[in-house]
Design a protein around this nucleic acid. Structure first.
Lengths: 121, 121, 121, 121
DNA sequence: GTGGTCTAGACCACG
DNA sequence: GTGGTCTAGACCACG
């Protein structure tokens, strides 16, 4: 896994986990990697993973079973989708639309670009 | 002016200036506010405005005349448009598209949302 | 049995046992559950129960007969009462009183709340 | 300031701050010590104070002004009192009452002990 | 084995 | 100056 500079690593890891849950590669109720395992796997300090898990626990995406590990909470798939959708509609899109308007991009163009993206990826 | 938390204040100020230039509220050749004026007007640390001006100067949008002030450079309108477009296509859109795909948003929906935005604003 | 998050599980189990002794549901001299039995019953790691028994053994509430099991020691009822009382007066109460004072709770209120509790339970 | 072993230091610091707010030694809107200042004052690692501030920010007791520092949020006095009272009534007291009943402490005794405490401190 | 806390210290962006 | 992130590593309680 490669980390970008725009965002703290611990949040990028959180996104990575969220996406695995959202796409149901990881199911609700599953145990996630232990702090140590994931830190080794991602070549990152255990503290950084700990921070990710803390963050996701405070958002009730993960929960801890003492002495055993962290688990994906029930309902987290819906919760993540809801949060992401909210951000998308209320924050990301208005920003993009504002710029798009400023640059004179038409709705047609935008949807064509999106269509191309969907084909390529 | 209100500042969002997602972006450094100095960049938000840069955007504010860029947009005034792009929409030709401020013309090429015009003198912009002095650092002190703008920092008072925006209720912001003068250092922050200084950083904005440095930033815009490095992008050749502004230039400085010693002892007089900062001026909007010739050709800056085009330059800003080019920079914004570049960012838009190479950075902003791919990000939005990635999230859109993850959430199952269709091209049609996206263009509809954009159309609504254009009508409303 | 449900475990709270405030306290280690092994201490919550110790409390559970202590209360059974204190209320004389379990008598001095009785054999308690084996580690395996209790761990199954409480759905808990055997190590955890082991820790509980070690703890209670160090307080001379339980003692071990090799190959047979753990037994409730003579005099443990009094001993538990003494320990609990000590903790109550020296640790629990001062803490509660400190918070009570901070929140402006009067002695009258406190005793009323206690009275209600005694009636209800 | 001395730290007990029962609770993480970063939470003890949070309590210390909360109490200063609750008793209005520190007022809403005030700036609190910078991370570095407080860490020096309490002889503690800056990371630990950072953790406290993060914690209090997530509870909306503190908020951050970029480049300036942390401030006590409006309404935090009420919020802290509410949280403390809730915990007191729903968690702390039932526990104390349970033990009190088990030990045969009377409401009268309890209120006397509290009265003594209030006089002494 | 599991997570949780803490220190020491570095480096950085921002105001 | 301010906070924010991260590493390296230790130590500990708990299951």
């Amino acid at each position: 896994m490669e980390f970008s500079k725009n965002q703290p690593i611990y949040l990028q890891i959180a996104d990575y986990i969220s996406e695995n849950i959202l796409t149901e590669k990881w199911k609700e109720g599953d145990r996630v990697y232990s702090v140590r395992e994931l830190s080794m796997k991602l070549q990152v300090n255990p503290n950084t993973v700990m921070r990710t898990y803390n963050h996701l626990q405070s958002e009730k995406v993960l929960h801890n079973q003492r002495g055993i590990g962290y688990f994906i909470s029930e309902g987290s798939t819906d919760k993540i989708r809801k949060i992401k959708k909210d951000n998308f509609v209320k924050i990301d899109l208005p920003e993009i639309f504002k710029t798009g308007k400023l640059l004179g991009v038409s709705p047609r163009e935008l949807s064509d670009l999106y269509q191309n993206y969907l084909k390529e990826v």
